[in-house]
Design a protein around this nucleic acid. Structure first.
Length: 218
DNA sequence: ACCCAGGTGTTTC
DNA sequence: GAAACACATGGG
């Protein structure tokens, strides 16, 4: 590695120097951030590639299924066929429908869901673990939550760090950001919301790791 | 033909 | 508890 990394702020500066995210459309990095698409995408992308998710999302859009009620009512076989290319399509189809139904039952609509859902509610849903829950919280709801994924674990291993679990990594990432928030405001621009720093930082980690071709975790 | 991808849930020691 | 396994398609 070209630099020493002692905390997550060092890592952010290093990734910043790489000029990543130049051709990314969404300012928060995840396509159509702040919308229901992120919620569905968080399930579809599990162990799949993003270009496949984009195809499935566009399939759903073409059938006018990018809303909670439509997903709940659609024929399961049809839903499966529209997301087939993402893999694990049977369980993902069931989980999408279940999630949509639970959002309607517990929150009424997506706007209310955005305002009132919490992490524990998300983690109770079938098919939503730590990363999907945090992705939804950050990229769909703009909450101050740092997403941790396998790329992050791999990258930190490369820098010689070892962590016990997901939340250890998350705490490390967050503490380096919060402790240097004033510098980060200068690095990016004034008054950048914390949620966006987290979002872009996570995006940089993914985009950088994709290009590195780091060998997978066993 | 093999390996991996913006994980999660269940089973088994 | 952690390790191992199942889920599955598509692109390199």
């Amino acid at each position: 590695m070209e630099i020493d990394v002692y905390n997550s702020f060092d890592l952010l500066q290093y990734l910043k120097s790489k000029n990543l995210l130049q051709n990314i459309q969404d300012e928060f990095w995840w396509d159509n951030s702040g919308t229901l698409e992120v919620v569905f995408g968080a399930i579809l992308v599990q162990n799949a590639k993003w270009d496949q998710v984009q195809k499935s999302i566009s399939n759903l859009k073409a059938q006018d299924l990018l809303n909670l009620k439509a997903i709940t009512n659609v024929d399961l076989q049809l839903l499966e066929s529209l997301i087939l290319n993402c893999g694990f399509y049977r369980q993902k189809a069931v989980r999408l429908q279940l999630l949509a139904r639970n959002i309607i039952n517990d929150f009424g609509d997506f706007d209310n869901f955005k305002d009132y859902v919490d992490r524990d509610w998300l983690l109770r849903q079938k098919g939503i673990g730590f990363e999907s829950a945090d992705s939804i919280l950050n990229y769909a709801l703009y909450r101050d939550v740092f997403v941790v994924d396998k790329y992050t674990q791999k990258l930190l291993l490369k820098f010689g760090f070892e962590f016990d679990d997901y939340h250890d990594i998350q705490d490390w990432l967050v503490s380096g950001i919060v402790g240097n928030y004033d510098k980060i405001e200068k690095l990016y621009y004034p008054n950048i919301p914390l949620s966006k720093v987290y979002a872009r930082f996570h995006g940089k980690i993914v985009e950088y790791s994709k290009n590195l071709l780091i060998s997978p975790l066993k």
